[in-house]
Computed example of a mutant assay.
Amino acid sequence: ENNEEIEFSPSMLTEMAGELHNALEQASEPSTKEQKSALRKKRRQLKELEAHRDKLQEYNNHLDNLQDRNSYSKTDKEATFMRMKEDAMRNGQTKPGYNLQIATENQFIIDYSLFPNPTDTLTMIPFLKSFADRYGQLAHTVVADSGYGSEENYHFMSENGMEAYVKYNYFHMEQRPRFKPNPFKAENFFYNEEQDYCVCPMGQKMQRVGTRHTKTESGYVVEYARYRAVRCEGCPLRCLCFKAKGNRTIELNHRLRIYKQKARELLCSEEGLKHRGQRCIEPEAVFGQIKYNMNYKRFRHFGKDKVLMDFSFLAIAFNIKKMCTKMNKEGINWLIKHLYGLITDHLSYREQNNRDYLLNIAA
């Protein structure tokens, strides 16, 4: 017996329905009551087959609109249902929208882009690439909060020679004066890099027993090294260490550990403290002015292209307004000095082609 499942497509069902329809038309006129009943049954089955075909086609159209997303709006098929920061009903309801990413320098919007994915982690690399498309090269210095701190993002910035002042999760917790790391967490175990083994809080060596690989949504491969204790039976700290049966097995991501260490050194340096303090008044202040001073809290159009056009006009107006404000405060000399700086940077860029851009990213 052949138990393989056959995956039907709308074209296959259309062909089958056409053959059945032709067969019914060429059949002789029924004469008996049983033949008439059988003919009605076949016609009913043909209608059900056509209904299944239409439903399957509709389902395939939904999948084409979804692509890699989990939802989309019927009125704006490029928008994705997300949880918004402004939740008037306070019930966590989702609304169709876009994930807006902006990059600023001196509170001027220098780049922006829209993404259908609500997760900031997955938007950083394509946003940095869009910046390169706009300015002809990647940014040299990137400052972002912990929502962007992932191994994939750190790897991309390291491979492209960027200074990544990007926080990771638990970075703020580590900076607290009373912070004490949990000694029973796998990432806090002592690790001997030369001989590739870990030491548990009880002092027992945990030898490497294998490697596990996973893939992110974008296809990036993450590698986890697995270590297992030899004998956990009778350990006085077992009740605090783990609750599973047998010996404890842990998984460590060594690449992410190295990236976090580099990020911690940069963030805690004198330059890092400066960037961390500046970031709070850079993109967040821009969003605050846009939302609350200009009351721009929702897009006025449907479709990604129109929404992007909508925000483009706002970004132009915002930068002009910011420039006029600076001119009123500092006089016309500020504009002359700024234009002179732009011309100098442009000439040096053409000569050396290595201008450094500072990105403060926020969503």
Rank of each mutant, 00 (worst) to 15 (best):
R257C: 03
R257L: 04
I258N: 12
Y259F: 01
K260D: 00
K260C: 00
A263W: 00
A263H: 04
A263N: 01
R264H: 15
E265W: 02
L266Q: 05
L267C: 08
L267W: 14
C268T: 15
C268D: 15
C268I: 15
E270V: 15
E270N: 15
E270S: 15
L273N: 03
K274D: 11
K274R: 07
R276A: 14
R276V: 10
G277P: 03
G277Q: 02
G277Y: 02
Q278C: 06
R279L: 13
R279G: 07
C280R: 15
C280Q: 14
E282F: 00
P283M: 09
P283T: 09
E284M: 09
A285F: 10
A285N: 12
V286D: 07
F287Q: 08
G288W: 01
G288P: 05
G288A: 05
G288N: 01
I290D: 00
I290P: 02
K291D: 01
Y292P: 06
N293M: 14
N293Q: 15
N293P: 14
M294Y: 13
M294S: 12
N295V: 10
N295P: 15
Y296F: 10
Y296H: 10
K297V: 06
K297Q: 07
R298P: 02
F299M: 04
R300H: 05
R300N: 04
H301D: 08
K304I: 03
K304H: 07
D305I: 10
K306Q: 14
K306P: 13
V307S: 01
V307D: 03
V307K: 03
M309S: 06
M309H: 03
D310Y: 11
F311E: 12
S312I: 07
L314N: 07
L314P: 08
I316N: 07
F318L: 07
